[in-house]
């Protein structure tokens, strides 16, 4: 019983002190979230109190200086751009992960994986600048004005693609070897193995990665602001310019005062609500993953 002093059941004084510090640090991290939500509520309270929640959804337009606070078109724009990017990046990302794991020779797969990791580190404003000077004029030649929902979706796709590809790759790597051996023993083809065995087994991991990417897409500001046109309207086609909730805050915050400013905090509140819902969903999938 030499080890008893260091066991978890009877912690030493150093352990107890460490546990104390760690719990304070953890408590601070958790408190930040609560404080942010409280701060958003506090800052948006003046306008919420006066005109109520509903007006933000029912007002026809966003003209804070004229007392109109309709956020709904921006809510749709945010959802549309994120969903579009998620569909594109989801398909491409999972395909690239499958290629990397099952088809590419190891000499190609490793550098490829490194490059995807590097892609994840490129700052969003660089994507935005490229979009503004290359992508938007390209679309404008075809369908003016160019700055559009489509441009936003394409830029977001580029940005979240590495997240999807890397998490999908990790999920595929986590599929137990025994499954693959079993499939091989049954004489299944490679495509059959991928479709019937690997993908179902890695499903929850891939979905968790997609939810993570969705969080990034919803919160992305600078790149979308530079390419999406920022006109407050409900998009009816891919070529309509749109403004997302994040772009709304970034565009107007510098100059907003009074109720206009409070209205922008409501944008932030709505956005945080969406991200929190997404995080809860991701947690549930993450939990489901451990049962596989």
């Amino acid at each position: 019983m030499i080890w008893s002093k260091h066991s978890i059941s009877s912690p030493s004084r150093t352990d107890a002190r460490l546990a104390g510090w760690l719990s304070i640090a953890a408590g601070l991290a958790a408190a930040v979230l609560v404080l942010i939500v409280l701060f958003l509520l506090h800052e948006s309270w003046p306008v919420l109190n006066r005109i109520g929640w509903l007006r933000f959804l029912t007002d026809a337009a966003w003209h804070p200086s004229e007392g109109l606070f309709g956020l709904a078109p921006m809510l749709w724009a945010t959802l549309a751009s994120s969903t579009g990017a998620l569909v594109l990046a989801g398909g491409l990302g999972v395909a690239s992960a499958l290629f990397c794991r099952f088809y590419a020779p190891p000499s190609a797969a490793r550098p490829y994986r490194r490059m995807v990791t590097l892609l994840a580190g490129i700052p969003s404003v660089v994507f935005g600048l490229w979009g503004l000077t290359v992508l938007v004029p390209l679309i404008a030649r075809w369908q003016p004005p160019g700055a559009s929902l489509l441009a936003g979706i394409l830029i977001l796709t580029l940005m979240i693609l590495p997240t999807v590809a890397l998490t999908a790759d990790a999920a595929l790597a986590a599929v137990p070897k025994a499954y693959l051996h079993g499939a091989a023993a049954l004489g299944m083809s490679r495509s059959g193995t991928i479709l019937r065995v690997v993908l179902p087994a890695a499903r929850s991991g891939i979905i968790a990665g997609l939810l993570l990417a969705a969080g990034r897409a919803l919160g992305e500001t600078m790149a979308v602001l530079m390419v999406a046109g920022n006109v407050v309207q409900t998009p009816h086609s891919l070529f309509d310019p749109v403004r997302t909730l994040t772009a709304n805050i970034a565009l107007e915050m510098d100059y907003a005062t009074g109720e206009h400013r409070a209205g922008l905090f409501v944008s932030g509140l709505v956005l945080s609500g969406m991200i929190i819902l997404l995080a809860v969903a991701a947690l549930r999938f993450g939990g489901a993953r451990s049962h596989v």
Binding site: L225, G229, N230
Partner: peptide, 16 residues
Amino acid sequence: HVVIGENQQGIKTVAG
């Protein structure tokens, strides 16, 4: 059709 923030963004938009 396009709403911009900074002057620079406006100039890049028109130039493109």
